[in-house]
Amino acid sequence: MNTEHVKSPARPPEESGLERGWTVYTADMRSHASLMEAWTRLIRDLIESRFLIWQLFLKDFKAQYQQSVLGIVWSVIMPLVPVLIYLFMSVIGVLSPGAIGLPYVLFVIVGLTVWMIFSDGINFAMFKLLQSKAVLGKIRVPKIAIICSSLGRVFFETLVRTTLIVLAMVWYGISPSGQGVILLFPALIALLCLTLSVAMALSLVNIVVRDIQKLVEVGLTYAMFLSSVIFMMPDEGLIGGISSFNLMNTFINGIRDTLFLGTPSKPGLFLLTSGFSVLLLFGVGRLFYVMEHVIDDKL
């Protein structure tokens, strides 16, 4: 066999005796890519496929509400359904969370909105990538583009839920902290980093091992109850200690506190979690780039 080809390290195009403008594919080109190289390629893929991302988002958006009488109205109703269920339960008094210093309705809406960025982000990405499998085997499409297009729906639904938050705040006469609204952006970006990292890693592995999707569905359902979405996790004691390792618990509490109080109640933990999320994305990005091609022939 041509072992000498395999064993020779993959050289970047510039060094391989070819002029610029050549695209080179070798066996180990991806495994040898450094963090910088991997991210450069990923970002280039993203920029090159921005039109594709938009088209895929539009396609899914249209396809979702086609052949329905209410049409686009569903795009507003659907994101609100899970929120409204918990609202209803709190209004009839099934859920009584105790003293939280905030109208319970607002507590739940904000918690759910933040939680669903994470859980929908992962679920949609896994679903989309699996669904696109057939096309991926035939046409070269960057998988990162497909994952990002699925995040489009998350953005949209979050926007709809945010409107509800604003309405609820007007209803209760609660205004957000000005400083909090500004701090919200970096916090949300950190959350997005975490979501994207988990979504990228899991959706890729899920193509090879389908068990992942089922595990994740179940896992996310239970994890929601451990993440201060509909009731507060205890702050202290053993559970409080364990909960500080639950990144989503920290994010949800932190973002809720930031929005209404101006700062997270545990700023140190929140900063640590955010920083970790950003670093995680960097690491996962490289792994994603390295592992992406394994999926293609193992479909």
Binding site: H5, P13, S16, Y25, T26, A27
Partner: peptide
């Protein structure tokens, strides 16, 4: 991706 050799386009 090839398992061995090189493709240049």
């Amino acid at each position: 991706l090839p398992d061995g050799g090189r493709v240049a386009v």
